[in-house]
Amino acid sequence: MGNKRFQSSLTKKFVMAFMGLFLITFLFVHLGINLLVLLPDKDYFNLAAHFMSTNPVIKVFEVVLFGGFIIHIIYGLILQIQNWMARPDRYKIEGWSHKSPFSKFMIHTAAIIFIFLAIHLGDFYFRAKFGAIGDVLINGEHYHDMAALVMAKFLSLGYVVGYILAFVILGFHLHHGFQSAFQSIGLNSKTYTPFINGLSTIISIILSLGFIVIPLVIYFGS
């Protein structure tokens, strides 16, 4: 018994890879907007947040994004379960050979990221949509004061530490994920693979550090 019933293993890997790369582009957009909160004038951040939650094009993309997350998660789970099933009897001494260390912990890092995501969506996304958030007046119009919400959250030491940890973990996830996606879609060559591997490290550090900087600045700046 294997995984014949539901797409081939390679097809699933392609889907994982494409979704992963798509989610990375979203992270860059998200990071860009988040960094606005560090500007002295919080209006930019609030306006960007408003744009992201009301623009019809973005709204369509929001659905795509959620779909992407769900597919990435479900496929990841299926692949992982099949992988566990492929070796029902474990070794007494587990092997440690690898060329991409974090690949061994993708499911673990994913679980932590997923928990973070659930908390994060509850704290910000759903509150912005449905919860009570203070207003702010910009150019005579009322907007949600998302900046204040963020600033308030990041005054709690526990929250800051949790947030940082989550993004360190995300960095590990991306360090393997980005370059691995290229291998999965069949792109591996002496000429460009070293570049992709380097890029993978850079991207994981930029995204990880970029997000981490925000709570640090807020916490220690207050």
Binding site: S9, L10, Q82, A86, S97, H98, K99, Q183, I185, G186
Partner: peptide, 26 residues
């Protein structure tokens, strides 16, 4: 199982076969 691009196979292959073959197959 499915490939997770860990490349332990390449490390342990007694004939040092490269994972570029996996990419080619993909």
């Amino acid at each position: 199982g499915n490939c997770t691009n860990t490349y332990a196979c390449e490390v342990e292959c007694p004939k040092e076969i490269k994972v570029t073959n996996i990419a080619r197959m993909n």
